[in-house]
Amino acid sequence: MPIPDLKKKYTYADYLTWPEDERWEIIDGVPYMLAAPSWQHQAVSRELMVQFGSYLKDKPCEVFAAPFDLRIPCEGEKDEDTKNVVQPDIVVICDKKRLKGTGFYGVPTLIIEITSPATARKDKIQKFNMYEAAGVKEYWIVEPDQRVVMVFLLEDGRYGRPHTYSEEDKIKVSIFEDLEIDLKSVFLY
């Protein structure tokens, strides 16, 4: 397949025809090719998955890591017509009936994006706005280089001022009353 035409709008149906060995996202119909993450990114992702996974064992919600096709539809869009197909680094799903095929169709409960120089702008602007508009209850932006996590909570349809944490802190996860994430072990590298 040739590289998608950046002037054309694409959907999940188009995305499914692209080579499986390439990683892409589509935001508002515009395709973005993804690069391989750094080892620091992967270390942070692994530790967050361990902590969330241990907590969620035998509970109704599940945690998934990229690659995972999250399709966030605009109002009335069918799955195959969705123009937003993203690969969040970590996603917590509490509505398991919407798990389909290669991921999830709908709005997850929590999303974590781990930034890199190539993705920071997209994570902080485009994805932030998309997740807020869709109604994602909790959105984390993790910055491995600075060893900082910004947590945004949805209140009255908007993300308020972020709660910012450093490597010495523990994050009380708002959607689970008894879960704290220890950032000391997340930023251990």
Rank of each mutant, 00 (worst) to 15 (best):
G76H: 04
D123L: 07
F152P: 00
L56V: 03
K8Y: 06
Y189M: 05
M150F: 13
P31H: 00
I26T: 04
A66P: 13
A65H: 14
D95A: 01
P37C: 11
V92P: 02
A65L: 14
Y159N: 01
L6D: 01
I111L: 15
F64R: 12
C94P: 07
W39Y: 09
W140F: 13
V50Y: 14
M1A: 11
L188K: 15
Y32D: 00
A13K: 14
T115N: 02
I27E: 06
A36Q: 12
E25Y: 01
H163R: 15
D69Q: 00
K96L: 15
A43K: 13
E168Q: 13
K57N: 05
K100H: 14
E138L: 04
I181R: 07
R98M: 09
T109N: 02
E132S: 08
K124G: 13
P4R: 06
P37D: 11
I175S: 02
C74V: 02
E47T: 09
F104L: 04
K122R: 14
V136P: 12
Q87A: 11
E167D: 14
D81S: 14
K184F: 12
D89Q: 10
G76F: 07
K9L: 13
K9F: 10
P2R: 07
P73I: 04
K170G: 07
M49L: 15
L179Q: 04
G160D: 03
D123V: 11
Y131D: 02
Y165L: 05
F104H: 05
C74S: 14
V142W: 05
K8Q: 15
D145Y: 02
Y55K: 01
S166Q: 07
K97A: 10
K172T: 08
D89P: 11
